[in-house]
Design a protein around this nucleic acid. Structure first.
Length: 235
DNA sequence: AAGCATCCCAACCGCCTTCAG
DNA sequence: CCTGAAGGCGGTTGGGATGCT
């Protein structure tokens, strides 16, 4: 049995937002902050589903959004993050300040896919398009992420749990990714999950992974729910 | 100028996870 | 522990914008 609808659909608007609706939503959130999305529409005088309000705010109305074209640096960063994370758009977006997961997803599907294809690279596997046998015998990290999700891509902090093959797409990358679980409750000690590269023979992260230069950088994902700690182990 | 095709992106849908009761 | 509500995420779609013939 599916979940009940998030709101009373019979009395909600759908489709494009009007200027007035935007104004109401912005004014309400400025006054009260982001609170309970379910109750927000009624409180703000909007005939919208709470989820719709949340999406509109996060993807379009938030003041910290960076609108406009993506830079070449952002393009390359997105490609590299996608090769590591697969279609984890919210995680990728969290690495690019002012960008949203929806924007990332759209941009990937409309621009970057094409860009990679024109380079002869499979946008799903990040391997050369004519490398069919490789594609079959070696699951990329992206597809691995899709198929096995956290089971493989996210290992625990125990180095012994490393599994071969996960990071084949970036064999010389020595990367540790630590994901802190949500801090909803401040009293809780956040558990940590980390990603470690398998092949640490090469000590340099020199194949363009400049974004990993800093030894420890914390990023806040868009939702502020998850924190990720990327570390390049470049010793 | 008109009609059609394609592109782009905002918004929706449905599923999953989290958490409170 | 179980259940349902709510938030969050990724996939998909509708329709306006743009390009092409």
């Amino acid at each position: 049995m599916g979940r009940s609808p998030c709101c009373e659909k019979a009395h909600t608007n759908k489709g494009a937002w009007t200027k007035e609706e935007d104004d109401r939503l912005v004014a309400y959130i400025r006054a009260h902050g982001e609170g309970c999305w379910r109750s927000l529409p009624k409180a703000a005088g909007l005939l919208r589903c709470g989820k719709s309000c949340r999406l509109r705010w996060i993807n379009y109305l938030r003041p910290d959004l960076k609108r406009g074209n993506f830079t070449e640096e952002e393009d390359e960063l997105i490609i590299k993050l996608h090769s590591l994370l697969g279609n984890k758009w919210s995680l990728i977006a969290g690495r690019l300040p002012g960008r949203t997961d929806n924007e990332m997803k759209n941009y990937w599907n409309t621009h970057i896919r094409r860009k990679l294809l024109s380079r002869g690279i499979d946008p799903t596997t990040h391997r050369p398009l004519n490398d069919a046998s490789q594609n079959q015998s070696h699951a990329s990290s992206a597809s691995a992420a899709k198929q096995h999700d956290s089971e493989i891509l996210i290992t625990d902090t125990d180095a012994n749990s490393k599994r071969p093959g996960v990071f084949e797409v970036c064999p010389d990358l020595n990367l540790e990714l630590t994901i802190s679980l949500p801090h909803h409750h401040q009293h809780q000690q956040p558990d940590q999950i980390s990603l470690k590269s398998i092949n640490s023979e090469s000590s340099t992260a020199g194949d363009g992974f400049d974004f990993l230069e800093s030894k420890s950088s914390v990023l806040d994902c868009r939702s502020s729910v998850t924190q990720i700690d990327w570390r390049a182990l470049t010793e």
